[in-house]
């Protein structure tokens, strides 16, 4: 189970604290059991319902005003000369 929790941490990029790892490990088991109920059904001839709305819409190729730099950066914690500062992309 801890393997699974580790895998899930990596997939979702969430670092759990130790106490959380244990709890979530147990919860995940229970919840997956709860999910497995649908496997009681024979669904081989059923079409999945992907979208409740059958048809989407398009938009015209006409430019509209965008956010100012100030607005775009208004919630950014780290910025430099108008750029948003992000973490390094090196290593794993």
């Amino acid at each position: 189970m801890s393997d699974l929790v580790d895998k899930l941490q990596r997939l979702s990029l969430i670092d759990l604290k130790e106490e959380e790892k244990e709890r979530i490990g147990r919860d995940v088991q229970k919840i997956l059991q709860f999910f497995n109920k649908i496997n009681e059904l024979d669904l081989s001839n059923v079409e999945p319902l992907f979208h409740p709305i059958s048809q989407g819409k398009l938009r015209k190729d006409v430019a509209q005003s965008s956010l100012t730099q100030g607005e775009a950066l208004s919630n950014v914690k780290r910025k430099e000369n108008g750029f948003i500062v992000g973490p390094s992309t090196y290593g794993d």
Binding site: R59, T68, Q69, A72, N81, F83
Partner: peptide, 26 residues
Amino acid sequence: KTKLFCSCSSDYINKDPNTNTCPVCL
């Protein structure tokens, strides 16, 4: 003239950084 999923202008080259964004593409 615009981006794929929002109405921001597609003319982005040589613009000051982060001056051509909207809630969608941000």
